[in-house]
Design a protein around this nucleic acid. Structure first.
Lengths: 340, 340
DNA sequence: TTGTAAGCGTTATCAT
DNA sequence: ATGATAACGCTTACAA
């Protein structure tokens, strides 16, 4: 606690010559018609003079509310989650709530007890993009360790039945696949994220669904971890495998696309003339690469905002419906007509 | 608070047939020689059965400690801060502390009242890379809003006299400048971050100091915001300015170097054959670019760890000394011998 | 070895 | 319109 000698509401009361209850009412903003304007002002002045700050722990203890939500993310380094946080924090702030970030250790293995590690007192949990097995420890009956829970970017059909706020990733993949097909590509390799999370399973399924209908399409898949080096190696394999070379690499993320670009450069392939490369996420990295990435823009802030709104409704006893947010294809320089 | 019906220590006591005090002692781990092993086990069993979780607010209120430190950063999106967090959280965890992240709004303007917005109860503050004017609201006498404060990557001579944990950025710049000079470069343009923070002022001074001694060196400076597009434009200006073209761009960050690479590509300059480009930070981006960046690796995790250690010492009434952590030049493909 | 009781600072329910 | 007063759940002297 920060109150190591700081003034308490009692001190304010004494200074203002009123009771503690009056101070609470005035400073809590619920004094209309219960305290005279004159005393109210006296109280505010005294509080200001003393530099009074309410003790959050005491308030929390009394009200049973911490005014804080926990946002569990698999990785801080990823720009996507920073944007989710921004959106969630904005909505939270409008309701007098704060958001505390908890990077789930390693993203691998069950996230055991986020509520012990993130020490702050918590009213509810927003869990984003959790790996399938990380869900085991959490989420029974829409609550996490007894706390109300909303899942972001996660399997809506997962056991536990917590409300979910999702992105239309399947549709995003569909848009991208059609973009590539329209450019004449038929030999398309899916550079897939090798992570057991809902979003990647959906992407794989969507790629398959979209390309399986095309009669002359030759679809392949390579898997790799979510980093540039791994993607570079996987792309290299894809581009040097026996048989006709793919003319397009459809990557599960901008980071992977960055690795694909490097592999292409290594092999002396010009992008997009000899090879098209597509990303997913639309991170700022997408604009930093050369050529800039054709990718799918994910409204991360809106995911955070919608998720927080849902959690607040949950805390108010409501039952928010799960939803899916639209995504948008962004065409830049890394894709072009199929060669030949 | 999360305790809307959850079991309290009283419930545990009742279930175990002991008093609340005994429960507290056992679960608090301070029962050696005060409670028999048998009763201790009974208590632990009862707590386990009931799924008891201590009420953090109540504990906090009683002990006067929240067990939480606030880490204020100017931007979540930047990998550097994620790494600082990781280091800080690791050290904190060893001492039963948690770390709460607070992204200072916009990084611009005075950070007013981080302690109201980040609602959690806080014992101390770790502030990283704050803009000079953002310090105004904080940090009088080594405390922030009455809380113990440690500054990371900030001016050690700033008023307020909070302990600082810094990186040897001046030395990093020096290493880089010498690297470029050793490669024969003499026309070097400093692509400087246009942000009023300690670290960038130090970098500018170090570049000037290191290059001013070289008789035939032709040093220039361009400034830009900390993003790829701005850096691209600034680098373009630098490379097309009247007079002999620089043979090397010494950039204040990897992000800026990414922009420089794009400008070079636009102008048909091959890197590093026609132009050398250097970064700073060694983000994962440095390895994603092509060519990979010669840069300076910053031990961000260690900054966080050292900062947290200093804060803990401060909380224990000690007075930690300020320090500077070494940095290391990492030579990759984006720098090479000066042309001609 | 264990229990009793006080109190942390706040809010909310009653009286006045 | 304002003031006593009782909780909230926990830790920690102190008593037994």
């Amino acid at each position: 606690m920060r109150n190591g000698g700081g003034p308490t509401s009692r001190d304010v009361a004494r200074a203002a010559g009123v009771s503690q209850a009056t101070v609470s009412l005035v400073l809590g903003g619920k004094w209309r018609g219960r305290v005279s304007e004159r005393t109210a002002q006296t109280v505010r002045d005294a509080a200001g003079d003393l530099g009074y700050r309410p003790n959050l722990a005491a308030r929390s203890l009394r009200t049973g509310r911490a005014g804080t939500a926990l946002l569990v993310v698999p990785a801080l380094t990823h720009e996507y989650f920073a944007r989710v946080y921004t959106g969630a924090a904005a909505v939270a702030a409008e309701h007098g709530f704060g958001v505390v970030l908890y990077p789930s250790p390693a993203g691998v293995g069950p996230a055991r007890d986020p509520f012990g590690s993130a020490r702050a007192a918590i009213d509810g949990v927003l869990a984003s993009s959790m790996a399938a097995d990380a869900l085991a420890g959490i989420g029974d009956g829409g609550r996490a360790g007894g706390l109300p829970l909303v899942m972001l970017d996660s399997d809506p059909a997962a056991p536990g039945g917590a409300p979910t706020v999702n992105l239309a990733v399947a549709d995003g993949i569909r848009q991208m696949a059609r973009h590539l097909l329209a450019l004449g590509h038929r030999r398309i390799t899916h550079v897939a994220g090798d992570v057991d999370a809902w979003t990647f399973r959906v992407r794989a399924r969507a790629v398959a669904a979209e390309l399986s209908d095309v009669p002359d399409a030759l679809t392949r898949t390579v898997r790799c971890a979510l980093d540039v080096q791994a993607a570079r190696e996987a792309s290299f394999r894809a581009l040097t495998a026996p048989g006709p070379r793919p003319t397009a690499l459809l990557c599960d993320g901008d980071l992977l696309a960055a690795g694909a670009l490097k592999a292409a450069r290594t092999l002396g392939l010009r992008v997009p003339r000899d090879l098209s490369v597509s990303g997913f996420d639309d991170l700022s990295l997408a604009g930093a690469l050369d050529p800039e990435l054709t990718t799918v823009r994910l409204p991360a802030e809106e995911v955070g905002a919608a998720g927080m709104a849902a959690l607040l409704r949950l805390l108010d006893g409501g039952r928010p419906e799960s939803g899916e947010l639209p995504v948008r294809l962004v065409v830049r320089g890394s894709t072009g007509p199929a060669p030949g």
